[in-house]
Amino acid sequence: MTETIKTDVVIVGAGPVGLFAVFELGLLDIRAHVVDILDRPGGQCAELYPEKPIYDIPGLPVVTGQELTDNLLEQIKPFGAQYHFSEIIAGLEKTEDDRFLLTTDAGTRFDAKVVVIAAGGGSFQPKKPPIDGVEAFEEKSVHYAVRKMDVFRGKRVLIVGGGDSALDWTLNLAPVAQRVTLMHRRDAFRAAPDSVNKMRKLVEEGVVDLALGQVTELIGEDGVLKAVKAKLVDGQTHEIATDAMLPFFGLTMKLGPIADWGLNLEENLIPVDTEKFETTTPGIFAIGDINAYPGKLKLILSGFHEAALMAQAAARRINPDRKVVFQYTTSSTSLQKKLGVA
């Protein structure tokens, strides 16, 4: 078992609000570990609208999601947060001495005094194909990610989608699998042109099958897939024999394990007070889009404000004997030292 990381704070979510929480906590000498299911920081800003303009960040007339993320990372650099990407907090328990034990799906364990949930709309998870009964085949025959290519050795594999993941795995699994069929609803692909060209070459050589259409039904039993039914562009329903299906339909936001943390959720949101942004469990705070309180607005700027107030309360919990002196970054040499500018 890996060693448990003992820390003051674990921040769940590396979106703009989670990142800014690093800053506000950092000014109060609190170091944080940040966990996010995505493989990079930014949350929705990085995943949904990296190139799209945001117009309501105070002081920035226009900024894209990626620019805002990059700026925040620069701003919080002095506080040395440690990031754990591509991991989701799967379990959270309270200990008898009022700390929290958190475990990620990758087995990372934290022992923290404070938990800050900045999980936005929940965790980004692979979108499931809208096919009835698909759940029954998951893990055994339907896979949303490839962890080990060897699992598909000698098998007939159906890859569904038209983006980079679908194309990359088509190319990578073609030499491993007995047969790869790529299915996409149209003869145009979002993936990198180079991958598309390589795929087309494999199709020409008869190594890979390309089927244009949409899967409508899965056939098999006990979670073991035998074939799929698909409506192809000829308007007919065809049966395609396959041992495994890999759907790549992008990501969607799901609340995920947070639902099981006893936080008295209301419509998938976490109720908090508006003084400390603390949940009904003392020591667990919730900031940004994931929380709910009277008058709540799901704005990044509201999340920033919530982060600042949360940090004051978190500091009192973490260092109960220390007096928190309110200071401005403009004039306080002690804050400027922490920021590395004085």
């Binding site: 809208p130 989608g161 038209g162 983006g163 609803r185 149209r186 979002r190 949409q214 992008g250």
Partner: peptide
């Protein structure tokens, strides 16, 4: 938009 429709159900 056509790219994004790839993610929709029953297109």
């Amino acid at each position: 938009e056509e790219d994004m429709l790839d993610f929709a159900y029953d297109v």
